[in-house]
Amino acid sequence: MEQITLTIPALWADHHVTSVKRLLSPISGVENVFASSAFKQVMVEFDASKTSQAALVKALSDAGYAPGTEAVVAESPFATPDPAWEKLGQRVTTTNPIDLQLSGEFRKY
């Protein structure tokens, strides 16, 4: 029985965990799959006589889960600095009357 641990940047949420487990578990020779979206890692125990690390990596890569080390979103194409910081040198806040109203006797009985 062999064991490999792969870092997969695209494994960032639990619905990807489900996908990766569904992808690997049916492969002949795969005994156990432990996937962690918090660590973005998957650990696979497999029978080397039936499958190989290369085959597992290929299956993952073909499904969009290529092992790697880089964070998948160092910078998002959407990300922009908060424009408010450009406009305002100093932030001035006042208490909204709704806050006061709601935080008062909101349950009167």
Binding site: W12, A13, A71, V72, V73, S76, P77, F78, A79
Partner: peptide, 10 residues
């Protein structure tokens, strides 16, 4: 959280 937000938005 911000990284998660970016990914889910994508």
């Amino acid at each position: 959280a911000i990284r998660g937000a970016m990914n889910i938005a994508r």
